[in-house]
């Protein structure tokens, strides 16, 4: 399994860094922790994923969980939109670390 949903916390704070033991485990298995934070209510959902897992798998799982279309959702990291087909490896993320992505709703106007 490429990505695994491990918890969903209703607005509670999720630590930026995993605990030492957890970080060691993640590093050993070449995985990392990804936290998706929903903007409107601050709900955070954690995933464990491999370095080579395309983000679209996580985004689809997240969208399914919240009953929304992935097409209408945007996922941001440090001022950039995270592309569906990119992977943690492509983003130069490191195994054993935790990363937070913000979820926003797509905008359209005329």
């Amino acid at each position: 399994m490429d990505s695994q949903l491990i918890s969903s916390s209703g607005g509670t704070k999720v630590d930026e860094l995993p605990s030492e033991d957890e970080a060691e485990d993640l590093k050993a298995s070449n995985k990392l922790k990804l936290v998706i934070q929903r903007t409107n209510d601050g709900e955070k959902t954690e995933f464990i994923l491999k370095m080579t897992t395309p983000f679209i798998k996580v985004f689809e799982a997240w969208s399914k969980r919240f009953h929304v279309s992935p097409r209408t959702q945007r996922f941001l990291f440090q001022g950039e939109k995270v592309l569906d087909q990119s992977t943690p490896k492509m983003m130069e993320w490191k195994a054993g670390r935790s990363y937070v992505i913000d979820n926003m709703i797509g905008q359209e106007g005329g």
């Binding site: 903007t39 941001l76 440090q78 001022g79 913000d102 926003m104 905008q107």
Partner: peptide, 24 residues
């Protein structure tokens, strides 16, 4: 260029967070 989501965050009273580059 800023992301159009910046104002959404600010309107909610939040910090810009991931709508901004890490070092700006």
């Amino acid at each position: 260029g800023m992301l159009p989501f910046l104002n959404v965050k600010l309107q909610l009273g939040l910090s810009p967070g991931a709508t901004m580059p890490k070092s700006f």
